[in-house]
Amino acid sequence: MKRRLSSILATLALSVSALAIAAPSAAIADEPPGVAYVALGDSVASGNGNLPYLDEACLRSNRSYPLLLARELGLAVVSTACTEASTADVLEQLGDLVVAGAIGPETELVTLTVGVNDVQLDADPAPDWGDVLGACSNKSPLPPEMCGVLLTASLQLLATLPQKIEALIDAIRAEAPSAQIIVTGYPLLFGDFTGTCSVGGGVTFGEEEARLINAAVLQANDLIAQGVAAAGDANVMYVDVVAGFDGHGLCDTGDRWISGLIAPQARTTDRGFHPNAAGQRALADILEAAIAG
């Protein structure tokens, strides 16, 4: 989910306009050929907002789920995951790996988390997750019904996501013929609550708005799962992480594994509405269990 998301909500709280930030390209150098584990994806896979960073441009964290999973599995890993990455950006990430010789016949595992950032690619101007969440919060200048309108528009922009996921899987398979490929969905942002959910900075969400946002995430996950199914590859697995995060969303019954808004001046402000350190650990554990079968 985009780096811009938390800044938009924070600036909505301050009634200041936010600017879009372009996704930087991930760079790979001096990696051995055919690394055992390769990770691709967006800010959920890069672990943004969780210090320390291995790559400041992509907000790639040493506490991201790919690095945690690699340690648990005892595998060497290269991650090109980058904040704000779309499916097109992930195809470029794959190209970087190919040029570096970091993916090949010796690669055993590839993980992929991507999809929601594609909401801005197929129309101009287009709502993205930041616009949607801003419209669904108490700080929005828009009528309340615009929350559902923008969510619907966003999902319409994701109509071709299954084909894009399928194409990514085919491209990965061409470079890593023996690898197990795991494609993840996204956790829900909100848990069960009554009244309003405060996420920091004076920003709140109502029950209906939270329900609509969660429903949109579920629909995005379904589109990703459709792409995996369409690939028709027995060694590709879609892993739904929603159940694993049950009880740990914003304003949920247990500890938060999703961060609320972080102060705009903080170095970790990009963690807003992303998995925190506990959430990244949970993602690694969910994937490890899926791999073990």
Rank of each mutant, 00 (worst) to 15 (best):
P32V: 14
S43F: 15
R71M: 07
P32F: 06
L68D: 01
L68R: 03
E31I: 12
D30M: 12
G34Q: 09
L59D: 02
S46A: 15
A29N: 12
S61V: 06
E72S: 11
S61F: 04
D55G: 09
I28W: 07
D42F: 15
L40A: 10
A29T: 14
N50Q: 11
A36W: 08
I28L: 14
A45H: 07
P52E: 11
C58Q: 01
A39Q: 06
I28K: 08
R60N: 03
Y65L: 02
N62D: 15
Y53D: 04
S64F: 02
R60E: 02
E72H: 06
Y37A: 07
A29H: 12
A70I: 00
E72V: 05
G34Y: 01
V44Q: 08
G47V: 12
L67V: 00
R71C: 03
N62F: 06
S64Y: 01
A45R: 05
L59A: 09
A57C: 08
L54I: 07
S61W: 04
V38P: 04
S46H: 07
L68Y: 03
G49Y: 10
A45L: 10
P32S: 15
E72L: 14
P66V: 01
L73I: 09
Y65H: 03
R71F: 06
E72T: 08
A57D: 10
P32L: 13
P52D: 10
R63T: 02
G49A: 11
R63K: 07
P32R: 14
E56S: 12
G47F: 13
P33H: 06
L69C: 01
A39K: 05
L67F: 00
D55F: 12
V44G: 08
I28T: 15
C58A: 14
N48G: 15
C58I: 11
L40E: 04
D55M: 11
G47K: 11
L54Q: 05
G47C: 11
A70C: 00
G41H: 10
E56A: 14
Y37V: 11
A39V: 10
P33Q: 09
I28R: 09
P66W: 00
L40W: 05
C58K: 02
E31A: 15
P33E: 05
A36K: 14
V35K: 03
P33I: 04
P32E: 15
A57M: 10
S61P: 04
L59Q: 03
A39W: 02
S46T: 11
D30H: 14
G41M: 08
E31T: 15
A39F: 03
D55Y: 05
L54M: 09
S64V: 01
Y53S: 03
A36S: 13
D42T: 10
V38G: 03
A57H: 04
N48Q: 15
N62S: 14
N62K: 06
A70L: 01
L40N: 08
Y53H: 03
P52M: 09
V38A: 08
A36E: 12
R71Y: 06
P32A: 15
R60F: 07
A45F: 13
